[in-house]
Write a protein that binds this DNA or RNA. Structure first.
Length: 292
DNA sequence: GGGCAGGTGTAAT
DNA sequence: ATTACACCTGCC
């Protein structure tokens, strides 16, 4: 049966899983396909070696499977529904002091920063450069299917660094990586032979870890900041993609163009250690309400 | 079918 | 120091 996960942290499952930080979740219909209107939806994703099914209703977030004590703990940590010093509800209380975010938050509240596998995040965001979310999801799915360990029919784990490092270029090309394929291969080799130690980067301070990431071919400032924020737990990181840039320029600078480094400095100064959460809310707001 | 979207690396000022 | 352009793919 399903377990109800306590969610005093105020996590909104759909907003979190559709926030562009993770690429291995999809929504399926639950129950009878003949009454799709009333059918609840279930989020199906891959977390490590587990195929995870979750739903959320008025009562909370339910873990449909796998329903074991170990899985329950892992998923609670992954989602950030454990009461920690920075969970969505508490973060949003602080961010709402910003008059701009106070207007944004009603549309975006409940976004959590997932505690993802840094290795998967590294590769996923190298793939994300100059790319869009549906295509990123296809590429990551393709890598899992061709190089990852099968978990259940049609679903595989994200490939290990060793498997990815040893992959043929044509295998990578078949996943539509395009010109990013050599970046992916190089990064996989760096991790596989220990020259890039992601666990060590997670322990370093934000600035030092950032410098190290920028040395990796295919990782620039935006992707580096995504890896820091989504994979390494550096919640002060503020990745600036076109949407975040639009949002900041529109909402804080009267629509005036600003240089990226000025936006970066502004965000670090204004949001401090919560910059990553602010970025998530601005990104979600821009994508849903600033299209046009 | 040409245009466009999306970050980074590189070569040009 | 900043700026212009190429890179691959899929969608309109």
């Amino acid at each position: 049966m399903a377990t109800l996960l306590p969610n005093t942290a105020g996590v909104d499952l759909r907003r979190t899983l559709e926030s562009g930080q993770a690429f291995r979740w999809r929504w399926d219909h639950l129950g009878s396909p003949v009454s799709p209107g009333s059918a609840a939806q279930v989020a199906v994703g891959v977390v490590g070696r587990r195929v995870v099914r979750l739903t959320q209703d008025g009562r909370g977030i339910r873990l449909l499977s796998p329903d074991t004590p170990e899985a329950r703990d892992a998923i609670r940590r992954y989602l950030g529904v454990v009461p920690r010093d920075t969970h969505p509800r508490r973060v949003e209380m602080t961010l709402a002091a910003d008059v701009v975010l106070a207007r944004v938050l009603p549309h975006t509240a409940g976004i959590s920063l997932l505690a993802q596998d840094p290795w998967e995040v590294l590769i996923s965001f190298i793939v994300s450069q100059n790319n869009n979310i549906p295509k990123i999801m296809r590429s990551i799915g393709g890598l899992a299917r061709t190089l990852g360990e099968p978990l259940e029919t049609g679903v595989s784990a994200f490939p290990t660094p060793e498997r990815l490092a040893a992959a043929y270029m044509r295998t990578l090309a078949a996943c539509s990586l395009g010109y990013r394929a050599p970046y992916v291969r190089t990064a996989a080799r760096l991790v596989a032979d220990g020259r890039l130690d992601l666990a060590a980067l997670a322990r370093m301070d934000h600035g030092t870890a950032r410098e190290a990431l920028l040395e990796v071919p295919g990782i620039g400032e935006k992707v580096g900041d995504c890896v820091l924020l989504f994979g390494l737990g550096h919640h002060a990181a503020f990745p600036i993609d076109v949407w975040v840039r639009r949002a900041v320029e529109r909402l804080y600078f009267k629509g005036r163009t600003r240089r990226l480094r000025d936006i970066q400095a502004f965000a670090q100064e204004r949001f401090g250690p919560l910059a990553g959460y602010a970025q998530q809310h601005l990104f979600a707001y821009a994508r849903t309400r600033l299209r046009s």
